[in-house]
């Protein structure tokens, strides 16, 4: 029975899917190796990529692959994290202000919609030139991209509080401060985390993108350098794999933090 349960569980299914994708990759890699001149450029084997990551060969200057990616990660991700933090705080504050004051809400709402529609990532080059400094621009773009999902989702969270909860507080003659700290702010936590889950991978993407526009030591820089032939092509593939993993991980980490902060079960409406 237990074995049967394991085989039909969610985790096993995902595992099978991952295995399936790996198999398909390898099949294509074999096809590519047989037909293309430089298979490494198009689709190398998975084991080639993984092997290169752990090997001791010096890839650039004095660093091995792992060291190179490690330092690049630090540079890029640190700035992404800072931008993410700033965007989160500002987004949350705006949602709070919008809920507190109708005037602020009316002013900010159309602009918030605009931010959703504008391709901010596409403006990366110009932000880089305005700030002139690659670190600042990584932070700025990550912050802007985090800002919208966090504030939109948090605002939705505030608005989703049931009328009756607010009426109860009203019947206790509670102050506005108490209404917020005891009811509205705790209620919007799941929505807040939805915003975080959406924006964490985006902040990382933004930071990497900015890298590619200018020389330096970030992940994106290594990416473009490898593409142009400055380093072996496997650097490129390793970075692609690593950034994909980091993107997915950031999403999971947010989910984990949410589980830590809110361990209780949420009651479903239908009773």
């Amino acid at each position: 029975m237990k074995i049967k349960k394991f085989f039909s569980s969610q985790k096993f299914i995902v595992f099978v899917w991952v295995l399936g994708i790996a198999v398909i990759w390898e099949i294509f890699a074999f096809i590519v190796a047989a037909t293309k001149r430089t298979p490494v450029n198009v689709l190398p084997h998975l084991w080639q990529i993984i092997e290169a990551f752990f090997s001791d060969k010096k890839v650039s200057g004095k660093m091995t692959m792992a060291e190179l990616i490690g330092t690049a990660c630090q540079e890029t991700l640190l700035r992404a994290a800072i931008g993410f933090a700033i965007g989160t705080v500002l987004g949350y504050l705006l949602a709070l202000l919008m809920n507190l004051s109708r005037i602020v809400e009316k002013i900010a709402f159309p602009y918030l919609m605009l931010i959703q529609m504008i391709p901010i990532l596409g403006m990366a080059p110009i932000i880089l030139s305005i700030t002139g400094d690659i670190n600042t621009s990584r932070i700025v773009i990550a912050a802007i991209l985090t800002f919208y999902p966090v504030s939109a989702n948090t605002l939705a969270g505030f608005k989703a509080v049931e009328q009756e909860k607010c009426e109860l507080m009203y019947s206790y003659a509670s102050s506005r401060f108490q209404l917020y700290t005891k009811t509205l702010i705790p209620s919007c936590i799941p929505y807040f985390f939805t915003g975080l889950k959406i924006s964490a991978p985006m902040a990382i993407t933004a930071s990497i993108l900015v890298d590619t526009l200018q020389g330096g030591n970030g992940l994106g820089c290594m990416l473009s350098q490898s593409l142009k032939g400055g380093m072996t092509r496997l650097v490129f593939w390793d970075i692609v794999l690593i950034s994909a993993i980091i993107g997915i991980l950031s999403y999971q980490v947010m989910g984990l933090i949410e589980k830590l902060i809110c361990p209780y079960k949420r009651t479903k409406k239908a009773d």
């Binding site: 991978p201 993407t205 994106g220 593409l227 994909a244």
Partner: peptide, 9 residues
């Protein structure tokens, strides 16, 4: 969650 910058090249 995969960064598009990895995808495009």
């Amino acid at each position: 969650a995969i960064p598009i910058v990895a995808l495009a090249p």
